[in-house]
């Protein structure tokens, strides 16, 4: 080869802080530490105690599970506003299949998983076939799934809140798996949360699927040009986010031994907020699941910390919106840096 070798990386190293902020999710980790310190001082020993720790981890876990699926989906360039409604249909499906149809708990859980995966599949298929924004498609699903859940509950039972799951065969094992708090008030849902996050991180960073997810969100046309089946990847992602929502619905149905047709409302927004606080770009192609874990953790700490500090809980929403705006600013800065030289 003639000509001088061009050198891509002979550029001055950026400062440690600047480098840190180009890592998606790092800002959320720093934010989580700062917020812990804030409430450790403001709320005092109650927040720092094991019971306090358990209370914010328990609060973060369901949202954290949702955020895992939503994070993968948003990295893949799509939104899912229907996850809150899927939480609702999941719990209601478990209740109707057990107390009304007469199945035991585990077959009901199996059928519920199939139903939720099917909803995710329909979301994905509609988005890739129509090329409509997933924001609109899943907004429609949000209302349809919620409406169907309420209608089904009323149709079968004339009520929208059902109880009595603890009288159904198989409940004890289900309680151990989904609803128990085995150690010091820490719920088993925390294990599900971190397990899902670890699995999703593995898929994203170390498997070909992860590569295709990043490419499908970053530049779908380029991905197609090298043979990536973008439509298949996206449908799989919608099914994953529905599966995460399904798991949350099951966990809550088992824990509360019942379901409410309205369960999961607003969770779709909280999940997106957790993911964005975690450093994932709204435009897709860039982000981490680990960041979303910290996003959910921040959510849990703020929600419980505000109460423990003695501030009126209404301020939680104000704080949450502020965090979201701040996160978007930080993410934009990180994007600009990432596009520049390392």
């Amino acid at each position: 080869m003639s000509g001088p070798a061009s050198s891509i990386s002979d550029r001055p190293a950026a400062g440690v802080l600047a480098r840190l902020f180009t890592r998606p999710g790092a800002a959320a980790a720093v934010g989580a530490v700062l917020i812990w310190l804030l409430f450790a001082v403001a709320a005092g020993p109650a927040f720092r105690s094991l019971a306090g720790t358990a209370s914010y981890l328990n609060a973060a876990a369901p949202l954290g599970i949702l955020a895992v699926g939503v994070a993968l989906l948003m990295i893949g360039g799509e939104f899912d506003l229907s996850v809150g409604s899927v939480v609702g249909v999941s719990g209601m499906s478990v209740m109707l299949l057990t107390t009304e149809v007469g199945w035991s708990v585990w077959p009901a859980i199996g059928a519920t998983v199939v139903i939720c995966l099917f909803i995710g599949f329909l979301n994905g298929l509609t988005v890739v076939r129509t090329q409509l924004p997933s924001f609109i498609v899943t907004l429609a699903t949000l209302f349809m799934v919620r409406g169907l859940t309420i209608a089904a509950a009323r149709g079968f039972t004339r009520r929208t809140q059902l109880g009595g799951l603890d009288d159904v065969a198989g409940y004890e094992l289900a309680r151990t798996a989904f609803g128990s708090a085995p150690v010091a008030g820490l719920r088993v849902s925390i294990v599900w949360w971190l397990g899902c996050a670890a699995l999703a991180t593995w898929v994203l960073l170390r498997t070909p699927w992860g590569n295709w997810i990043l490419a499908a969100g970053g530049q779908p046309e380029a991905a197609r040009n090298v043979g990536v089946r973008v439509a298949r990847v996206k449908i799989g992602l919608f099914m994953t986010s529905a599966l995460c929502a399904c798991l949350v619905g099951i966990i809550q149905a088992v824990r509360f031994t019942g379901a409410d047709a309205l369960r999961g409302q607003l969770q779709e927004f909280y999940a997106i907020i957790a993911v964005v606080i975690g450093g994932t770009l709204l435009s897709g192609g860039y982000g981490t699941v680990v960041g979303a874990v910290f996003g959910a953790l921040i959510f849990g700490m703020v929600r419980q910390g505000i109460v423990m500090t003695g501030i009126d809980a209404d301020w939680f929403q104000v704080f949450l919106g502020g965090m979201l705006l701040l996160a978007v600013f930080v993410n934009r800065y990180a994007l600009v840096r990432a596009q520049r030289a390392p």
Partner: peptide, 30 residues
């Protein structure tokens, strides 16, 4: 304009769609 995914690393782009893998079963990985 559509050859590369700008936000992905050079190696991820290079092997996109034809990732070499190792390991079996759950440890099947890039």
């Amino acid at each position: 304009d559509l050859a590369m995914v700008p936000l992905m690393s050079v190696w991820r782009n290079f092997f996109l769609g034809s990732e070499p893998t190792s390991g079996r079963g759950p440890f099947h990985r890039i």
